[in-house]
Amino acid sequence: MLSEDVKSAYNDFYKSSDEAWRMLGAKAKARNIMEVCRSINPEKILEVGAGDGSILHFLDAANFGKEIYALEIADTGVERIKLRKLKNLRAVQSFDGYKIPYPNQHFDLVILAHVLEHVEHERMLLRELNRVARYVVIEVPLDYRFGVDRRMKHFLNYGHINMYTPTLLRFLLQTEGLEIIADQTSLTPPETIKFNEFENKKNKKTLIRVLKIELEYSLKKLFGSILGKKKQEQFGNAYTVLTKNSSQNLQIF
């Protein structure tokens, strides 16, 4: 169970006024989720760690699923989700961060987007996801890269206590009996980078800086398409996977 200090920190997070920033990031996350789930047709969907409901906003608008449910540790997040009045939302409630209050295989799909990097006991949560749904889709940021030691304070300020590469996440999921059936690596869209540079960081917006952001994105996209999956994973900013229960059902205790 989460401590009251941690829960309070996330309550304060959703009181902040950076909704435009969260919505911009959520747009890309929702797109990634729908992309890896093209091979399935989930009707009953749960998002665990749903935050303020920004990802659900885009999924609901796209009619992704007929019934949507949400769990969130922060009471402020729960209230913001309710205020969205999503047409397919059936229930939203707070939870303790680990125990999911639904029976076995209750959902077609459970979503865990940019949550696992915050979780102290990853395997406990993964086992709960595996228990309540036929399919699990997970997205994590790819924080681990060259120069990461110099950015540790930055990640900790965002509450990231775990770091992943695509290989590390694949290994973690396999050892929990989750079989990956679709995956993709994605780059942060230029519009999101520009917002961060010129709105969040308050850097002066110039034509040269805008062109530099767009050129870097285009080059990474080009080299990734030419050089293949491993290079895409090297350049990528997020990794999204769709998993299902594996007959291998390995668990490490």
Rank of each mutant, 00 (worst) to 15 (best):
148 V>W: 13
253 F>Q: 00
93 Q>A: 10
179 E>Y: 06
87 K>T: 01
94 S>H: 06
120 E>G: 03
218 S>P: 08
134 R>N: 14
27 K>G: 01
30 A>C: 14
241 V>L: 07
47 E>R: 15
108 D>T: 04
100 I>F: 11
232 Q>I: 06
132 V>P: 04
248 Q>W: 12
136 V>S: 07
213 I>Y: 09
57 H>N: 06
66 K>S: 15
185 T>D: 05
20 A>Y: 12
177 G>P: 00
44 K>C: 03
159 G>T: 01
200 N>G: 00
243 T>S: 03
113 A>E: 15
98 Y>R: 11
197 E>D: 11
18 D>S: 12
106 H>N: 10
126 L>K: 08
228 G>I: 03
189 P>I: 09
163 M>W: 11
170 R>P: 00
129 L>P: 09
182 A>C: 04
196 N>A: 02
83 L>W: 01
145 R>P: 02
113 A>Q: 09
147 G>S: 05
31 R>N: 12
154 H>N: 02
116 L>F: 09
63 N>I: 05
118 H>T: 05
210 V>I: 12
87 K>F: 03
67 E>K: 13
201 K>C: 06
120 E>W: 06
119 V>H: 06
172 L>W: 05
44 K>A: 01
220 K>E: 01
19 E>Y: 12
220 K>D: 05
250 L>H: 12
185 T>C: 08
247 S>C: 10
110 V>W: 06
202 K>Q: 15
7 K>C: 09
136 V>N: 00
253 F>W: 03
120 E>V: 01
237 N>I: 00
90 R>I: 08
8 S>A: 14
249 N>F: 10
242 L>P: 04
177 G>L: 04
179 E>D: 11
119 V>E: 06
14 Y>D: 05
49 G>L: 14
156 L>V: 04
113 A>Y: 13
14 Y>M: 07
244 K>T: 02
33 I>K: 14
3 S>L: 07
245 N>M: 03
3 S>F: 05
50 A>Q: 04
31 R>I: 06
121 H>N: 15
138 I>S: 00
184 Q>A: 15
167 T>F: 13
98 Y>M: 09
154 H>A: 04
229 K>P: 01
243 T>E: 00
47 E>C: 12
82 K>P: 02
42 P>H: 05
37 C>S: 14
61 A>K: 15
83 L>K: 15
157 N>S: 14
80 R>F: 04
244 K>P: 03
237 N>A: 04
149 D>F: 13
214 E>M: 08
159 G>W: 04
39 S>K: 15
68 I>Q: 15
58 F>Q: 07
165 T>W: 11
62 A>H: 12
223 F>I: 13
81 I>R: 07
60 D>I: 05
97 G>S: 13
48 V>W: 10
234 Q>K: 14
48 V>K: 08
50 A>S: 10
248 Q>N: 09
64 F>K: 07
236 G>L: 12
130 N>T: 06
204 K>T: 03
125 L>A: 14
14 Y>I: 04
14 Y>V: 09
49 G>Q: 14
136 V>Y: 01
81 I>S: 05
105 Q>V: 00
201 K>M: 12
